[in-house]
Nucleic acid binder design. Structure first.
Lengths: 202, 202
DNA sequence: GTCTATATCGGGATAGAC
DNA sequence: GTCTATCCCGATATAGAC
């Protein structure tokens, strides 16, 4: 693996990531990926023998990128409100850096669920462990009682949806003003954090 | 337009709707749509001269189907909490009947924003009107003050995301137990309603 | 209106030179 | 490792019979 080899590989993966996230697996064209990477189709196939293999690799990377220091936050020994606040801030931060990933994941997972779900398993995601953690935190203090699954999904919804739905929401509610929507998302961490914590107060 | 004509047309549109929602515009195959409608490819082109035209029609219908009696609820003259409760119940009901529509809309809108957004404009959606309504309701009573846009998006997030993300969430949090997830979604209307109303209490 | 058969073309994949 | 040229299949679209 020479120097140029890894460089090209990186360029390919980054280009492919962008194109796949824009167009989805089916919508993406190998030609477009090659152009975006500044190479040609043949070289693409030299590195990744098929579009399918390339896609799977990109999908894998997206998920690993996206299950970041978040797990740590959930396991720190702090009160629930603080934990939620940290989680929401960190999650929104990562989301803004990778705005297309959630939509990408949802769409592709609907297209081919079982095969792609394996990638999650490989990534070592253990939801029951996480849920237990949330459940314990909920019991500790004097919060309104709540199913931890609903809480978890509420938080994820509030963070992910406005980012994933941006092309629609920005046009519908912000006159397609990108700056305004950017500002909206920036201030949203605080809004969501307050919203969730208020909702839990008894 | 003979009897058979409208029958076939309906069959085509319903079949196309299902396939496009499953696979997206690029992923869908005219053959698959024809099979699902119980006809052959040529007849598809007889009714809709191109895949693109067929897709646009399905997209149009999806949007009209999906912006239902919801507008009425928002304009009824009732307190905000009650209005939110009604809205959430109605929206979740429609969602459960058309679980793939929102993500379909969002995904395709990301693929080709400007052209497809025209369909929204045609449908006569007026968000500023809706926002004004929410804003007024917020001022009326002694709720915690809140940006109506954030509130609106929070409600939509909490309703849509768990339905749209089902293929992933069900596998990750419910051991891919469809029944369990069904029950989860059924009880969710009450959970979301409480959650939002609590969050607004000062 | 509905079918079978076929034209046409785009795009994934490969061969082979350098 | 990287390129040009080419193969080949699958999918959209059309022609034309019934």
């Amino acid at each position: 693996m020479a120097d140029q080899s890894t460089n090209t590989q990186t360029k390919i993966l980054e280009a492919a990531s962008r194109v796949f996230q824009r167009k989805g697996m089916e919508g993406a064209r190998m030609q477009e990926i090659a152009d975006e990477a500044g190479i040609n189709k043949a070289l693409l196939h030299y590195y990744y023998r098929s579009k399918d293999k390339l896609f799977l690799e990109v999908f894998r990377l997206a998920i690993h990128d996206f299950i970041p220091g978040i797990r740590d936050i959930l396991f720190r020994d702090v009160p629930l409100t603080q934990k939620l606040d940290h989680f929401i801030r960190e999650y929104m931060r990562v989301l803004l850096e990778n705005p297309f990933v959630p939509m990408f994941i949802i769409h592709e997972l609907q297209r081919d669920p079982d095969r792609l779900f394996q990638v999650f398993v490989e990534a070592g995601i253990d939801p029951s462990e996480i849920l237990q953690q949330v459940e314990r935190s909920l019991k500790d203090n004097d919060h309104r009682s709540m199913d931890p699954k609903h809480l978890m999904i509420n938080v994820l919804s509030l963070c992910i949806f406005p980012v994933a739905g941006r092309p629609l929401l920005q046009r519908i509610m912000f006159d397609n003003d990108g700056r305004a929507y950017e500002a909206f998302l920036e201030e949203r961490y605080q809004v969501v954090s307050n919203f969730v914590i208020n909702a839990l107060q008894s």
